[in-house]
């Protein structure tokens, strides 16, 4: 029996909010930050983490992940606060599946299916990136040192991706929880 050095957990208590708005607008950023209580990352491939996790996913687009029960409240607060702005707030919780991968060989498994550089000096705290994993488009977020990552994938691809992970991770005794 191989010792498990990669663990995968499907997070089921999460809500996802897609936010679009003008990064050049100080008003917009202030309004958002006053609701979420943390910074809105404006640098590419970065994320902010406090009560929620906020991923930069485009120059005018963010993904906010939070506890499932908070989602509708946060959504309503953002809608209200941004009513006078050109912005778009959408609940996308149903569309995404979020996986948490941990263990010392996570980076090795990811390297089998993704062209991103997962070396620790490149992909560390505060980093997120969108790319492809195997044949699915995904969002990677670095969650915790040394090797814990979140992978957010569209719901319809999640079954495929889990099967791909099971295959790619078998040499590391991959476990699903």
């Amino acid at each position: 029996m191989t010792e498990s050095t990669v663990q995968v957990c499907v997070l089921d208590d999460v809500g996802h909010i897609n936010l679009r708005g003008d990064r050049h607008s100080v008003d917009f950023i202030t309004a958002v930050e006053s609701v979420i209580g943390q910074s809105l990352p404006v640098a590419a491939n970065t994320m902010s983490e406090k009560e929620h996790r906020v991923f930069w996913i485009g120059p005018d687009e963010w993904l906010i992940t939070t506890v499932a029960d908070n989602t509708l409240g946060l959504l309503a607060d953002l809608d209200k606060k941004l009513a006078s702005h050109h912005a778009a707030v959408n609940d996308v919780s149903g569309g995404n599946i979020e996986l948490r991968l941990s263990g010392k060989n996570v980076r090795d498994v990811l390297a089998k299916g993704c062209t991103l550089d997962f070396h620790e000096i490149v992909f560390g705290p505060g980093t997120c990136a969108q790319s492809g994993l195997a044949k699915a488009a995904v969002l990677f977020g670095f969650v915790e040192a040394p090797h814990t990552f979140d992978i957010i994938v569209r719901r319809s691809f999640s079954d495929y991706l889990l099967r791909w992970l099971a295959n790619a991770g078998c040499e590391y005794g991959i476990e699903f929880r």
């Binding site: 679009r20 708005g21 005018d60 050109h86 778009a88 959408n90 996308v92 919780s93 149903g94 995404n96």
Partner: peptide, 13 residues
């Protein structure tokens, strides 16, 4: 043009 598009394909069944 000030328009934002968001895909909801997978959010809604």
């Amino acid at each position: 043009l000030e328009v934002y598009l968001t895909s909801l394909t997978e959010h809604y069944a």
